[in-house]
Write a protein that binds this DNA or RNA. Structure first.
Lengths: 337, 337
DNA sequence: GGACCCGTTGTTAACGTTCACAGTCGGGGC
DNA sequence: GCCCCGACTGTGAACGTTAACAACGGGTCC
C-alpha cells in the first residue's frame, strides 16, 4: 500500500512540532485562548494549514464531557408538521454550533421513548429535544429520570421539562369563531387522534368558542390526521342534513373532507364552510383554496433550541414554557351561512 | 448539593472492582468476547446492573476510531421526497446499529456541500449519505476529496461514490406512454427546476417516449416543484388550444395545475388528462384523484444504508449503482382522448 | 532593588475505553 | 513427569485532547 494512504492524520503533537511549540499552545490557539502571542498564533495557524490538521472532536469530547451534539426524538418525520419542526430545530442547532442526532419513532409508547432517550444518552448528547405530541409520549417524558437537559415540543404539562408549543386551544377558537362570525348556527369538528395533545387542544378551543356563543357542540368525528380519515368523516358529514360549517383538525384531513363533499355533490363554500389547520404548502391550491390556521413550525423549532441552549450554557434554570400563537389564514373555503 | 447528584457516573473500573475482576474482563463481557467463563460473565453483568453502568461510547470511539455514527446531508427536509428518504435512512441506520447525524442545507451549492461534509467529517462519522438531487450537489460530491465512505442518493453519475436512485427516466416514460396509450396526440410537460437531476431524468423519459411514438415534443414548462409554479404553468396550459394531456413532474405542481384548470373551466379528465409524480399521500384525494408515478422513497433510504454499511464493514469495495424502479398508479385524472 | 503580578509557554496528568501482550491454570499426549 | 496448548484473566500502554499547575521573563509598585 502507498504510504500516503496509510499515513495517519496529523494530530496536535505534529502541529506543535511543526510550529516549534508545545501541543498545549496549539490547543490554546484552537480554543481562542487570549494569552497567546499573536506571532506564535500565526505560526501555529500556518502549521495547521500546512499539515491539513483537523482537531479530533471525539478526543475533545472525552475530556470536556461535552459532545456539542443535541439529540432529537421525533415521531414520523414524514408528516409535514414534525418534518418542519425538526428542520427548524436542526438549522437552529447548527447555527448555535451543535450537531444534531435524530431518532424517528414509528410509534410513541413509553418503551419507545425510553429506548430513544437511552440511546441518545449513551451517545453522549448534551441535550435532547423531544417532539412529543402524544399524551403517552409526554407522560413517558414526565416519568423518566433523565440526566440530560431536555425540552419537549408540543409536550403539554410534561413533568419537569421545559415546553415549547403552539397554542392549540387558541387555534381551535380562531377557527370556530371565524365560522360563527359568518353566521353559522354551529360548527362541526373532525378531530385528530384522541391521544394527541394537539388534537385535544383544538377540540378544547372549538368547544370553548361554541360554549361562549351559547351554541350546542355536535359530537366530533375522530380522524387520524390522514386524508383518508378526513374523507370518511366527510362522507358521514355529507349525509347529515344540518351541517353548514366544519372545522377540521388538520389540512390533510380537510383535503379528504373536501373530496368527499365534491363526490357527494356538496358545494364548498356555498353549502358548507370548511376550515383546516396547519397551512401546509398545498392548502392554497385545494379546491377550493382552504381557509386554515397557520402554525409556525419553524419558530417552534428555533425556540426549542433557544430554550435548550440557554439551559445548557446558562447552568440549571427554571423550567420554561414558551407558547407560539397560531394565525388565521383566510382563503375561499368559508362563506356566510 | 446532595452528593448523590454530584456522584460521577460509574466507569468500567468501578464495575471491575464490584465484580472482583479486571477492567479488561468487563470490557470483554461488554464486547461479547468468547473467552470469558460464564460464571465470571454473570458476576460482571450483575455488577453492571447493580451500579447502573453504561459504557462511554465517546471513549470507545476514541480508541477504536469508529463512532458508529453516519452523517446525512440533505436538502430541504420539509419536502415530502427528501423527508421520506431521510426517514428511511434513519430507521435503516438505527436498525444496523448506527447513529444518524443530520445536516439540512437550504441551498445546495458546492461550498454548502463542502462545509456540510467537513462538518460531519470533523465529528468523526464513519460514513456519509448525501441526498444530492441537484446537479451542482452531485458535481460538488464528485470533485471533493472525501476521506469517508460516501453514498449519493439521486446522485447521477457522481464521480467515485456509490449511487442509489429511482429510475427517473423510466418514470417519465411510464407517465408519457400511459397518456399516449389513451390516444392523446402528444403530451405536454411541466418540469422541475432544470438543475435537478430528477427533473432532467423525467424530461428525458418523456421525450424518449414521445420520440419513440413519432410525436412532436412541445416545449416543456419549467416549475420549481411548488404548487404555485404548477398553478402558473396550468394557467399557461389552459390558454392553449390543443392541450389534451399533461405530465407534471411532481404531485405538488400537479395540484397547482389542477387548480388552475378548475379556475379556467378546463375539466379533468374529460378535456385534459393529468399525470403527476411521487404519489404523495394527498394525491389520492385531489380533485380528481391523481394518476401518478410512485417513488419508493423508503426503499431508497434503506438501500442507501445497505450500500454504505456494506462498504463500511466489508472493506473497500467496488462503486455500486442501485436503481429502484418507479411504479404506475392509476387513478382518475386521465381518460381517453 | 526586591516583591509581586501578569502574560506567555511548557509539563504532566487526567478522561474511559480497547489493544497487545504476558501470565496462570488445568488437561492431554508422549 | 514433562511439555505444550488452549481457555481464561490481568497489566500496561495507547488513543488525542483539555485541565491543572509550574516556570519563565519583564514590567510596575513601593
Amino acid at each position: 500500500m502507498g504510504s500516503s494512504l496509510e499515513r495517519r492524520l496529523p494530530v496536535m503533537a505534529d502541529v506543535a512540532k511543526e510550529a516549534g511549540v508545545s501541543h498545549q499552545t496549539v490547543s490554546r490557539v484552537l480554543n481562542d485562548h487570549p494569552n497567546v502571542r499573536s506571532e506564535t498564533r500565526t505560526r501555529v495557524l500556518e502549521a495547521i494549514d500546512k499539515l491539513g490538521y483537523r482537531r479530533n472532536l471525539v478526543a475533545r469530547a472525552l475530556v470536556t464531557k461535552h459532545s456539542r451534539t443535541l439529540g432529537v426524538v421525533s415521531f414520523d418525520t414524514t408528516l409535514y408538521g414534525p418534518a418542519s419542526t425538526v428542520y427548524g430545530i436542526e438549522r437552529a442547532a447548527r447555527a448555535a454550533g451543535y450537531f444534531v442526532s435524530i431518532v424517528s419513532l414509528k410509534s410513541i409508547d413509553k418503551a419507545g421513548v425510553r429506548d430513544a432517550l437511552d440511546y441518545l444518552a449513551d451517545q453522549g448528547v448534551d441535550g435532547i429535544v423531544v417532539v412529543a405530541p402524544q399524551r403517552s409520549a409526554a407522560q413517558a417524558l414526565a416519568d423518566l429520570p433523565l440526566g440530560v437537559p431536555t425540552v419537549a415540543v408540543e409536550g403539554g404539562e410534561a413533568g419537569d421539562v421545559s415546553v415549547v408549543c403552539v397554542d392549540q386551544v387558541a387555534g381551535g377558537r380562531l377557527a370556530t369563531e371565524h365560522l360563527l362570525s359568518l353566521g353559522h348556527e354551529t360548527v362541526w369538528h373532525v378531530s385528530g387522534p384522541s391521544d394527541w395533545l394537539e388534537a385535544e387542544g383544538r377540540v378544547a378551543g372549538w368547544r370553548a368558542a361554541l360554549e361562549q356563543a351559547g351554541r350546542e357542540a355536535p359530537r366530533p368525528l375522530a380522524g387520524d390526521w390522514s386524508p383518508r380519515s378526513g374523507y370518511e368523516a366527510g362522507r358521514s358529514l355529507a349525509s347529515l342534513r344540518n351541517v353548514t360549517a366544519v372545522f377540521v383538525a388538520n389540512d390533510q384531513m380537510a383535503l379528504g373532507v373536501l373530496r368527499a363533499f365534491i363526490e357527494q355533490g356538496v358545494r364548498v363554500p356555498e353549502q358548507v364552510s370548511v376550515v383546516g389547520f396547519d397551512d401546509i404548502p398545498e392548502s392554497e391550491f385545494f379546491s377550493p383554496p382552504l381557509t386554515t390556521i397557520r402554525q409556525d413550525f419553524d419558530a417552534v423549532g428555533r425556540h426549542s433550541i433557544e430554550v435548550l441552549v440557554r439551559q445548557l450554557e446558562g447552568g440549571p434554570q427554571e423550567r420554561e414554557r414558551l407558547v407560539v400563537p397560531p394565525t388565521f389564514v383566510a382563503r375561499v373555503s368559508t362563506a356566510r351561512a
